[in-house]
Amino acid sequence: MSRSSRIRAVAHEAGANTGVEVDAEDLSVPGVWTLSWVDGPTAPTLAAAVAAAGRRLGVPGDDLVEVRYERAVTVRAAVAAAAHRMLRDGAAPPVSALAEVVADTEFGVDAEVEGQAWEVADFVLEGSGMDPDSTSLGEAEEVVRHLLEAGRNGVLVDLWLEHRPGPGRPPVLDTAGVVDDARAAVGALYRRLQDALLTGSAHGADPRARQLAAQSIRGLVAELVLDCQRADAAQAVIDGFGMASLSTEIGLSRSALGKQLGSLDEHTRTLGWMREHAAQWARACHDAADALRGQGTALPAAARDDARRLEHADPDGGWRAVRPTLAPARRLVADVELWPHPQHPHRRALLDLLDALDAAAPPTRAERHQRRPFTPGSRDLLGHHTDDHSTMLSQLS
């Protein structure tokens, strides 16, 4: 058997043992063979497999001295390597380190890159326009930039909601990235509430008094967080998502979430009314803002900011677009001094609508079921909107 036949036989067996097809060529330098393959094991791992195959086949060691190893890595595999690091370490590697990460990553038999990393890679590649079979490192770097921008939690939540055959286990969110912000915000809130509860006491610095206040604060903060969660759940319910379905979607039993949150009536009452009267409310907000800003006298800064918020009420945006105007509207109609006279028609119009809102009953089950439910990828429902609860932590610090 010639040397070329022996090397090709070794390459074939080494490839079979590591799960890849290995090509053996001596085109570049006479007598120097190049073994090339796609994805699969790293070069050191294949070199060890070649040496082992050579021993089993009785190939002389000198035949394998002048051998080069060249691995090509597809965009899909490179992104999977980055996704593996993201899942393991909490963040994707920087783009500048991708070549080194890929070179050190095993993709063949006994590969370190597991199933979820491949799922993430396929998911982010799906909308990238990149050819997953390309071996361009530059294209892989572009996709990895998306992993870095979206972050571990963002990618896994989108994968869970948008790219699954049916209900699946929700991801475990990594809180490490928000610990410092949360600690600062909660610490500032804790100290502020503690001082407020002990104001006027001659023993405000006494550790017993501080611990007594702390016990009260724990209960208060827990209830506030629970109410934020109720508000979020109510938004889903008002759009037709049943509580039992919402509970099972996030990995709980059908009744668990409802038991945890209790009644959502106070929240659904407001949202249900604003859903049905969004356009009417928006027009009243615009009219009131125009009346306040057009009366020729300067408004106080706070009132001016509230009037500006009313101007942003979108009559075509549904309840999500007008909900942020509710608190500013209440403040403006409550301050009679802002208006030319208390019975100004546009103040009266807002007051009448607020009275109707305050008297409204929560929507019935049948009314809620008439709404369009959430579906995976429903950006308009899952939406990126701002409300009082979503900015709570930032306002605490």
Score class of each variant (00 low, 15 high):
S4Q: 13
S5F: 13
S5M: 13
V10S: 04
A16W: 08
G19K: 02
E21A: 12
A24P: 01
E25S: 14
L27V: 12
V29I: 15
W33D: 03
S36Y: 06
S36A: 13
W37L: 02
V38G: 09
V38I: 10
D39Q: 10
T45M: 12
A48D: 15
V50I: 03
R55F: 05
R55D: 11
R56C: 05
G61L: 13
D63I: 01
V65D: 11
E66R: 11
V67A: 11
A72I: 06
V75L: 06
R76P: 02
V79I: 06
A82G: 05
A91K: 01
P94W: 09
S96E: 15
L98S: 02
E100F: 06
V101E: 10
T105G: 07
D110P: 02
V113S: 00
V113I: 00
E114W: 08
A117W: 00
V124Y: 00
D131Y: 10
D133H: 14
A140D: 03
G154N: 08
D158V: 00
W160T: 03
W160C: 06
V172A: 12
A176E: 08
R183K: 13
R183E: 15
A184D: 14
A185Q: 13
A185V: 04
L189E: 15
Y190M: 11
R191H: 12
Q194D: 10
A196M: 11
L198H: 06
A209P: 02
L212G: 09
A213F: 03
Q215V: 14
V221E: 08
L224M: 15
L224C: 12
C228F: 12
A234Y: 02
D239Q: 13
A244M: 04
G251S: 09
R254W: 09
L257V: 01
L261M: 07
L264E: 02
E266N: 10
G272A: 06
M274H: 04
A278N: 04
A279N: 07
W281C: 01
A284E: 01
C285Y: 02
C285R: 00
A288G: 05
A298P: 04
D305A: 12
D306A: 07
D316C: 07
R323P: 00
T325D: 05
A334W: 08
W339F: 07
H341E: 15
P342V: 03
H346N: 13
R348M: 15
L351M: 13
D352C: 10
L354W: 06
D355P: 03
L357Y: 10
L357H: 09
L357T: 04
L357F: 11
Q370P: 03
P373A: 05
G377I: 01
S378D: 14
D380N: 09
S390F: 10
T391F: 08
M392I: 09
